[in-house]
Amino acid sequence: MSGKKKEGKHKYGMVIDLDKCTGCGTCMVACAAENNVSVQPDESDKQRSIAWMLIYKITNGKKFPDTEVCYFPRPCFHCENTPCVSVCPATATDVDPETGIVSQIYSRCIGCRYCQAACPYHARTFNWWHAYFPTTSWGPLHSESLQKLYSWWEGRPPRSKGLERYLSPEVSVRMRGVVEKCSFCHHRLMRAKEKAYMEGRRELEEHEYITACAEACPAQAITFGDLKNPNHKVSKLVKDPRAFRILERLGTEPKVYYLSSKDWVRRMADNYLEGEFEQKIKVKKTG
Protein backbone atom coordinates (compact mmCIF):
# COMPACT_ATOMS: atom_id res chain seq x y z
CA MET A 1 0.00 0.00 0.00
CA SER A 2 2.56 2.56 -1.02
CA GLY A 3 2.25 5.42 -3.41
CA LYS A 4 5.10 4.19 -5.57
CA LYS A 5 4.49 4.92 -9.21
CA LYS A 6 6.51 4.25 -12.29
CA GLU A 7 9.04 6.97 -12.85
CA GLY A 8 8.92 9.59 -15.56
CA LYS A 9 11.49 11.74 -17.23
CA HIS A 10 12.14 14.22 -14.44
CA LYS A 11 12.55 14.00 -10.72
CA TYR A 12 12.63 17.41 -9.17
CA GLY A 13 14.35 17.65 -5.85
CA MET A 14 16.14 19.91 -3.47
CA VAL A 15 19.42 19.94 -1.61
CA ILE A 16 19.70 22.13 1.47
CA ASP A 17 23.20 22.83 2.76
CA LEU A 18 22.82 23.06 6.52
CA ASP A 19 26.40 24.27 6.84
CA LYS A 20 25.30 27.39 4.95
CA CYS A 21 21.83 27.84 6.47
CA THR A 22 21.73 30.60 9.08
CA GLY A 23 18.10 30.04 10.04
CA CYS A 24 17.19 33.55 8.93
CA GLY A 25 13.71 32.49 7.80
CA THR A 26 13.81 34.19 4.39
CA CYS A 27 12.77 30.93 2.74
CA MET A 28 9.66 30.79 4.93
CA VAL A 29 8.70 34.37 4.13
CA ALA A 30 9.39 34.00 0.42
CA CYS A 31 7.38 30.79 0.33
CA ALA A 32 4.41 32.30 2.17
CA ALA A 33 4.38 35.36 -0.09
CA GLU A 34 4.78 33.32 -3.26
CA ASN A 35 2.11 30.80 -2.39
CA ASN A 36 -0.53 33.04 -0.78
CA VAL A 37 -0.15 31.36 2.59
CA SER A 38 -2.73 33.03 4.76
CA VAL A 39 -2.35 34.60 8.17
CA GLN A 40 -4.07 32.89 11.11
CA PRO A 41 -6.10 34.75 13.74
CA ASP A 42 -3.72 33.48 16.39
CA GLU A 43 -0.25 33.13 14.97
CA SER A 44 1.16 32.33 18.41
CA ASP A 45 -0.55 28.93 18.15
CA LYS A 46 2.19 27.24 16.17
CA GLN A 47 0.44 23.89 16.16
CA ARG A 48 -2.21 25.40 13.94
CA SER A 49 -0.32 27.93 11.87
CA ILE A 50 0.26 27.26 8.21
CA ALA A 51 3.81 26.99 6.92
CA TRP A 52 4.78 25.19 3.74
CA MET A 53 8.39 25.80 4.60
CA LEU A 54 9.17 25.54 8.28
CA ILE A 55 12.49 25.89 10.06
CA TYR A 56 13.30 23.56 12.91
CA LYS A 57 16.06 24.63 15.27
CA ILE A 58 18.16 21.85 16.77
CA THR A 59 21.07 21.93 19.16
CA ASN A 60 23.67 19.38 20.09
CA GLY A 61 22.44 19.52 23.67
CA LYS A 62 25.84 20.46 25.03
CA LYS A 63 26.51 23.28 27.46
CA PHE A 64 28.38 26.47 26.65
CA PRO A 65 30.96 26.76 25.17
CA ASP A 66 30.36 23.51 23.26
CA THR A 67 26.81 24.38 22.23
CA GLU A 68 26.18 24.11 18.51
CA VAL A 69 23.00 25.08 16.72
CA CYS A 70 21.69 23.97 13.36
CA TYR A 71 18.53 24.77 11.41
CA PHE A 72 16.49 22.31 9.36
CA PRO A 73 14.38 24.13 6.75
CA ARG A 74 11.60 21.67 5.99
CA PRO A 75 9.47 21.92 2.84
CA CYS A 76 7.30 19.00 1.72
CA PHE A 77 9.77 16.26 0.87
CA HIS A 78 7.77 15.08 -2.14
CA CYS A 79 8.61 11.51 -1.14
CA GLU A 80 8.99 8.93 -3.86
CA ASN A 81 7.30 6.39 -1.64
CA THR A 82 4.59 8.70 -0.37
CA PRO A 83 2.96 7.92 2.96
CA CYS A 84 0.22 10.46 2.16
CA VAL A 85 -0.95 9.80 -1.40
CA SER A 86 -2.11 6.22 -0.99
CA VAL A 87 -4.15 7.06 2.12
CA CYS A 88 -6.21 9.94 0.70
CA PRO A 89 -9.74 8.59 0.23
CA ALA A 90 -10.80 11.18 -2.34
CA THR A 91 -7.73 11.22 -4.60
CA ALA A 92 -7.10 14.82 -3.54
CA THR A 93 -3.35 14.33 -3.55
CA ASP A 94 -1.29 12.60 -6.20
CA VAL A 95 2.22 12.16 -7.49
CA ASP A 96 2.94 13.42 -10.97
CA PRO A 97 5.04 10.61 -12.43
CA GLU A 98 6.54 13.03 -14.97
CA THR A 99 8.02 15.37 -12.37
CA GLY A 100 7.78 13.48 -9.09
CA ILE A 101 5.92 16.42 -7.56
CA VAL A 102 3.27 15.54 -4.98
CA SER A 103 0.22 17.67 -5.65
CA GLN A 104 -2.64 18.73 -3.42
CA ILE A 105 -6.00 19.48 -5.03
CA TYR A 106 -7.62 21.92 -2.62
CA SER A 107 -11.03 21.89 -4.23
CA ARG A 108 -11.02 18.10 -4.01
CA CYS A 109 -9.81 17.77 -0.42
CA ILE A 110 -12.58 16.89 2.03
CA GLY A 111 -10.47 17.73 5.08
CA CYS A 112 -10.34 14.28 6.67
CA ARG A 113 -6.68 14.91 7.63
CA TYR A 114 -5.64 11.28 7.18
CA CYS A 115 -2.68 12.48 5.09
CA GLN A 116 -1.57 14.65 7.99
CA ALA A 117 -1.68 11.68 10.30
CA ALA A 118 0.31 9.59 7.83
CA CYS A 119 3.07 12.15 7.18
CA PRO A 120 5.79 11.93 9.85
CA TYR A 121 7.33 15.25 8.76
CA HIS A 122 4.32 17.47 9.55
CA ALA A 123 4.67 18.81 6.03
CA ARG A 124 0.91 19.09 5.70
CA THR A 125 -1.10 21.75 7.45
CA PHE A 126 -4.83 22.12 7.80
CA ASN A 127 -6.85 25.31 7.34
CA TRP A 128 -8.44 25.57 10.77
CA TRP A 129 -9.79 29.01 9.85
CA HIS A 130 -10.90 30.81 6.72
CA ALA A 131 -7.98 32.07 4.69
CA TYR A 132 -7.36 35.54 5.98
CA PHE A 133 -5.71 38.38 4.07
CA PRO A 134 -6.36 41.78 5.64
CA THR A 135 -8.27 43.69 2.97
CA THR A 136 -9.35 47.29 2.62
CA SER A 137 -13.08 46.69 2.56
CA TRP A 138 -15.13 43.83 3.76
CA GLY A 139 -17.83 42.81 1.36
CA PRO A 140 -21.23 44.19 2.25
CA LEU A 141 -20.18 45.19 5.76
CA HIS A 142 -19.16 48.83 5.44
CA SER A 143 -20.10 49.84 8.95
CA GLU A 144 -17.10 49.67 11.23
CA SER A 145 -19.04 48.43 14.23
CA LEU A 146 -20.65 45.71 12.14
CA GLN A 147 -17.21 44.70 10.92
CA LYS A 148 -15.96 44.53 14.48
CA LEU A 149 -18.93 42.42 15.54
CA TYR A 150 -18.46 40.10 12.59
CA SER A 151 -14.74 39.77 13.16
CA TRP A 152 -15.42 38.85 16.79
CA TRP A 153 -17.88 36.21 15.67
CA GLU A 154 -15.51 34.89 13.03
CA GLY A 155 -12.59 34.95 15.44
CA ARG A 156 -10.28 36.97 13.22
CA PRO A 157 -9.02 40.53 13.27
CA PRO A 158 -10.91 43.15 11.25
CA ARG A 159 -9.58 43.78 7.77
CA SER A 160 -7.93 47.07 7.02
CA LYS A 161 -4.51 46.44 5.53
CA GLY A 162 -5.03 45.86 1.83
CA LEU A 163 -2.97 42.68 1.83
CA GLU A 164 -5.19 41.12 -0.81
CA ARG A 165 -3.52 43.33 -3.40
CA TYR A 166 -0.30 41.39 -2.91
CA LEU A 167 -1.77 37.98 -3.58
CA SER A 168 -0.24 36.00 -6.40
CA PRO A 169 -2.75 35.33 -9.16
CA GLU A 170 -0.91 32.13 -10.07
CA VAL A 171 -1.64 30.28 -6.86
CA SER A 172 -5.15 29.56 -5.65
CA VAL A 173 -6.07 30.66 -2.15
CA ARG A 174 -7.13 27.76 0.04
CA MET A 175 -10.51 27.57 1.71
CA ARG A 176 -11.25 26.63 5.28
CA GLY A 177 -11.25 22.92 6.07
CA VAL A 178 -8.70 21.65 3.56
CA VAL A 179 -5.13 20.45 3.85
CA GLU A 180 -2.35 22.32 2.07
CA LYS A 181 1.35 21.82 1.62
CA CYS A 182 4.42 22.83 -0.36
CA SER A 183 3.98 22.30 -4.09
CA PHE A 184 7.62 22.87 -5.09
CA CYS A 185 6.21 26.11 -6.56
CA HIS A 186 4.48 24.09 -9.22
CA HIS A 187 3.12 27.25 -10.88
CA ARG A 188 6.70 28.26 -11.62
CA LEU A 189 7.18 24.99 -13.49
CA MET A 190 4.04 25.72 -15.47
CA ARG A 191 5.24 29.24 -16.21
CA ALA A 192 8.68 28.00 -17.30
CA LYS A 193 7.15 25.31 -19.48
CA GLU A 194 4.88 27.80 -21.19
CA LYS A 195 7.76 30.13 -21.87
CA ALA A 196 9.85 27.28 -23.26
CA TYR A 197 6.97 26.17 -25.42
CA MET A 198 6.54 29.66 -26.81
CA GLU A 199 10.21 29.70 -27.67
CA GLY A 200 9.94 26.35 -29.40
CA ARG A 201 11.82 24.38 -26.77
CA ARG A 202 10.71 21.17 -25.09
CA GLU A 203 13.32 21.08 -22.35
CA LEU A 204 13.85 23.53 -19.51
CA GLU A 205 17.16 25.05 -18.54
CA GLU A 206 18.29 24.44 -14.98
CA HIS A 207 17.75 28.04 -13.89
CA GLU A 208 14.31 28.33 -15.47
CA TYR A 209 12.48 26.43 -12.78
CA ILE A 210 13.50 26.94 -9.19
CA THR A 211 11.36 27.33 -6.12
CA ALA A 212 10.78 30.63 -4.32
CA CYS A 213 12.70 29.47 -1.25
CA ALA A 214 15.73 28.46 -3.29
CA GLU A 215 15.64 31.78 -5.10
CA ALA A 216 15.30 33.83 -1.93
CA CYS A 217 17.86 32.12 0.31
CA PRO A 218 20.51 34.80 0.97
CA ALA A 219 23.08 32.16 1.93
CA GLN A 220 22.36 30.15 -1.21
CA ALA A 221 21.89 27.11 0.98
CA ILE A 222 19.00 25.75 -1.09
CA THR A 223 19.65 24.20 -4.49
CA PHE A 224 16.77 23.05 -6.64
CA GLY A 225 16.76 21.04 -9.83
CA ASP A 226 16.15 17.78 -11.60
CA LEU A 227 17.68 14.87 -9.72
CA LYS A 228 17.58 12.82 -12.91
CA ASN A 229 19.52 15.29 -14.98
CA PRO A 230 23.24 14.60 -14.43
CA ASN A 231 24.07 18.16 -15.46
CA HIS A 232 21.97 19.72 -12.74
CA LYS A 233 23.77 20.78 -9.59
CA VAL A 234 21.39 18.86 -7.32
CA SER A 235 22.20 15.51 -8.90
CA LYS A 236 25.87 16.14 -8.14
CA LEU A 237 25.22 17.40 -4.63
CA VAL A 238 23.24 14.32 -3.58
CA LYS A 239 26.38 12.26 -4.18
CA ASP A 240 28.27 14.38 -1.65
CA PRO A 241 29.32 12.25 1.38
CA ARG A 242 27.69 14.90 3.56
CA ALA A 243 24.28 14.23 2.00
CA PHE A 244 21.49 12.63 3.98
CA ARG A 245 17.74 12.70 4.25
CA ILE A 246 15.38 12.89 7.21
CA LEU A 247 13.94 9.60 8.50
CA GLU A 248 15.52 7.76 5.62
CA ARG A 249 15.11 4.33 7.14
CA LEU A 250 11.31 4.52 7.13
CA GLY A 251 11.50 4.07 3.37
CA THR A 252 9.68 7.24 2.33
CA GLU A 253 12.50 8.18 -0.09
CA PRO A 254 12.30 11.96 0.27
CA LYS A 255 13.44 14.05 -2.68
CA VAL A 256 14.82 16.73 -0.37
CA TYR A 257 18.40 16.10 0.72
CA TYR A 258 20.43 17.86 3.36
CA LEU A 259 24.17 18.44 3.54
CA SER A 260 25.97 18.73 6.82
CA SER A 261 29.54 18.22 7.84
CA LYS A 262 28.51 17.72 11.44
CA ASP A 263 27.94 14.20 12.60
CA TRP A 264 25.60 15.23 15.41
CA VAL A 265 23.34 16.93 12.85
CA ARG A 266 23.26 13.83 10.67
CA ARG A 267 22.60 11.78 13.77
CA MET A 268 19.55 13.96 14.57
CA ALA A 269 17.99 13.30 11.18
CA ASP A 270 17.02 9.73 11.92
CA ASN A 271 16.49 7.25 14.73
CA TYR A 272 19.36 4.92 15.41
CA LEU A 273 19.85 2.06 17.80
CA GLU A 274 23.06 2.00 19.78
CA GLY A 275 26.07 1.43 17.56
CA GLU A 276 24.10 1.80 14.33
CA PHE A 277 25.09 5.32 13.43
CA GLU A 278 28.20 5.48 11.29
CA GLN A 279 30.29 8.58 11.60
CA LYS A 280 30.89 9.03 7.88
CA ILE A 281 32.32 12.49 8.03
CA LYS A 282 35.90 12.59 9.08
CA VAL A 283 36.37 16.33 8.55
CA LYS A 284 34.73 18.28 11.33
CA LYS A 285 34.09 21.51 9.51
CA THR A 286 34.28 22.56 5.91
CA GLY A 287 35.93 25.71 4.65
Binding site: C88, A90, R108, C112
Partner: peptide, 20 residues
Amino acid sequence: IGQPLRGWFIFWHVNVHSML
Protein backbone atom coordinates in the same frame (compact mmCIF):
# COMPACT_ATOMS: atom_id res chain seq x y z
CA ILE B 1 -14.22 16.46 8.14
CA GLY B 2 -13.21 19.97 7.23
CA GLN B 3 -15.51 20.19 4.23
CA PRO B 4 -18.67 18.22 5.10
CA LEU B 5 -20.39 19.28 1.88
CA ARG B 6 -17.69 17.45 -0.05
CA GLY B 7 -18.22 14.21 1.85
CA TRP B 8 -19.53 12.56 -1.28
CA PHE B 9 -16.14 13.04 -2.97
CA ILE B 10 -14.99 9.95 -1.05
CA PHE B 11 -17.39 7.95 -3.19
CA TRP B 12 -17.29 9.88 -6.42
CA HIS B 13 -13.53 10.39 -6.60
CA VAL B 14 -12.64 7.26 -4.68
CA ASN B 15 -9.02 6.25 -4.24
CA VAL B 16 -9.37 2.49 -4.07
CA HIS B 17 -6.00 2.14 -2.34
CA SER B 18 -7.10 4.16 0.67
CA MET B 19 -8.20 2.27 3.76
CA LEU B 20 -10.40 5.24 4.65
